[in-house]
Write a protein that binds this DNA or RNA. Sequence first.
DNA 1: TTAGATAATGAGAGTGTTTATCAAGCCTTA
DNA 2: TAAGGCTTGATAAACACTCTCATTATCTAA
Lengths: 156, 156
Amino acid sequence: MATDFTERTVEYDKLLADFKTLLKEKALKFTNQREKILETLYYSQEHLTPEALHQLIKEKYPELNAGIATIYRTLSMLEDNNIVSSLSFGAQGKKYELGAKDHHDHMICTKCGEITEFVDEVIETQQHKIADEHGFKMQDHSMQIYGICKTCQEQQ
Amino acid sequence: MATDFTERTVEYDKLLADFKTLLKEKALKFTNQREKILETLYYSQEHLTPEALHQLIKEKYPELNAGIATIYRTLSMLEDNNIVSSLSFGAQGKKYELGAKDHHDHMICTKCGEITEFVDEVIETQQHKIADEHGFKMQDHSMQIYGICKTCQEQQ
DNA sequence: TTAGATAATGAGAGTGTTTATCAAGCCTTA
DNA sequence: TAAGGCTTGATAAACACTCTCATTATCTAA
Ligand SMILES: [Mn+2]
Ligand SMILES: [Mn+2]
Ligand SMILES: [Zn+2]
Ligand SMILES: [Zn+2]
């Protein structure tokens, strides 16, 4: 039976292979910077701001000397190709995450900032219904629930 | 029977009176700038960026010479006191609207930027249910549906 | 393997938005 | 009316990106 680490590696290898294929299809180049950005997004498994992602990469690969502009450029490119998705929370700035996983919405703790992901079929269905009723051609949606997480409630 | 204008005026007078009471309670001062900001938010009945609100006020009350910093400060204060609420769309900044009206969510046309408001009981109920299931104490939520509005579909 | 074409990069300037600072002015209350 | 302290506008500064451009890296075809 495979360990978590092995599974992750296999999954990442597939992600990377697909990424290379995509780049080739679009006549884009496979660079060290692009590889490390994808890898860091994958292994951090978090919702990262471009700035946070830049920090992580500078720490792990200082010799890469990656510039912040490249982080922004690559995140935009990845988003255009549906490899990552971005969230804009109440405060300023966007956070990015690998979109390889299925669509989901977010619950955000206003005390500790913890983000919980969830999917709810009732809501997904209802959203389409609402759009239809308004003659609106739905492309996407975004839903956030704000509140206090279990841990923070217990601490108070 | 009262006209729309009369009704609006009465409603606005109540809003203003409540605002004055709030300021007094918090030992804050009732200034010309604060009055005009509230008034403009009320009568414009739109989702305004701080910049757009500033423009409207400069046009209608040039002698007030209101500074953009005051617009930002006042909007924050109004939001802290639940008099206005803000929406943050993916791309450009935040937009503010009077929160005096009942809670609602938004449908945004990605072509023309038109914002349609809606309320859906199924979704409202389901959100509470989801929060409960995660032991999460829900305080607020925000939901946006992105797509193409009826008008923009017909034009294409 | 090499070399040429060209995509990608980092540095840093530039942009638009929001916040902080501070001296001067305005509100409130006594 | 006078004092005090909250507010204000101007402006600098912080922030979150985006653009420009010279240099570098990658790809590919010979
Ligand atoms: Mn997520
Ligand atoms: Mn609204
Ligand atoms: Zn929490
Ligand atoms: Zn439209």
